[in-house]
């Protein structure tokens, strides 16, 4: 776990510095799902696997992890938010960046795309897995539940969904906007094998949640990861505004110093 912790710290540092350089928001969203992305790419990912970030607004977390995992050169990160970049605020369409199979950013597409990939892999008898990271906002969209019904019906056991369940969405607390609870029972009723990571910003907890999945189940899988928006930066944690705000110089200084050396 030590190595993966170091990877995470490096990614946190890059996320903060690149958002600062770009004077851009979505910092809290990227920090919320960073641990899930790091865990998938450095602990689970096998040749042929595919990852879809349905919550495309956390694109920078995906970019830094992909770069760290060798999908494209680190120098490419420096173009983030610049005119002429492939690294826009949301992942680009049209296979422009190695590791980004589909452009996302409009919520509710990722699970359908992942379900299509999982169906294709089953049909062509490929052994690989499809990982899909969704948000609570994704679960407000009807298309997400259309895909869930299909995945359950067709027993797409090669589909692994990770729900970044941080309790906040675009303009309020999720329970007050569209209450998804009981979320575990909901996914179970859609014929998913469900597991929970009590702390989705802790690798041991994420690992334990994978262990709790039934390896022999024919069902698609979902891990409900209880995460913290803005995880790792005290003044951002559980604050909706860090979905949007860029950092001031002072805030950046504080944030960077909170990342363990």
């Amino acid at each position: 776990m030590k190595e993966i912790e170091l990877i995470k710290r490096d990614c946190q540092y890059k996320i903060l510095s690149l958002y600062k350089k770009a004077n851009a928001g979505h910092i809290g969203s990227s920090l919320s799902c960073l641990d899930l992305l790091v865990y998938i790419f450095f602990k689970k990912f096998q040749d042929g696997d595919k990852v879809i970030l349905s919550k495309g607004h956390a694109a920078l977390a995906l970019y830094v992890v992909l770069s760290k995992a060798g999908f494209f050169p680190e120098s490419e990160l420096e173009t983030f938010y610049q005119d002429g970049t492939f690294l826009a605020a949301h992942p680009p369409c049209g296979n422009k960046l190695n590791g980004v199979i589909f452009g996302t950013g409009s919520l509710g597409h990722g699970l359908s795309l992942s379900t299509g990939l999982a169906f294709s892999n089953k049909f062509t008898k490929k052994k690989s897995n499809i990982y899909c990271i969704i948000s609570e906002g994704d679960c407000n969209e009807g298309s997400t539940w259309e895909a869930a019904l299909f995945a359950g019906q067709h027993k797409l056991s090669n589909l692994v969904v990770l729900m970044d369940n941080n309790g906040l969405q675009g303009f309020g607390e999720s329970e007050g906007v569209i209450n998804l609870n009981p979320i575990v029972e909901k996914w179970k009723s859609f014929n998913f094998d469900v597991s929970t990571a009590e702390n989705g910003n802790d690798f041991k907890s994420i690992e334990q949640s994978f262990v709790l999945l039934n390896p022999n189940s024919e069902k698609p899988k979902i891990i409900i990861a209880r995460t913290t928006k803005g995880s790792g930066v005290s003044f951002m944690e559980n604050k909706m505004e860090w979905h949007y705000l860029p950092m001031s110089d002072e805030q950046y200084h504080i944030a960077i110093n909170e990342i363990p050396a």
Binding site: G108, H109, S112, L113, T115, G116, F119, G142, S143, E146, A147, L149, F150
Partner: peptide
């Protein structure tokens, strides 16, 4: 489920 069909 036309939305799901097209994305899939």
């Amino acid at each position: 489920s036309e939305q799901n069909i097209v994305s899939m």
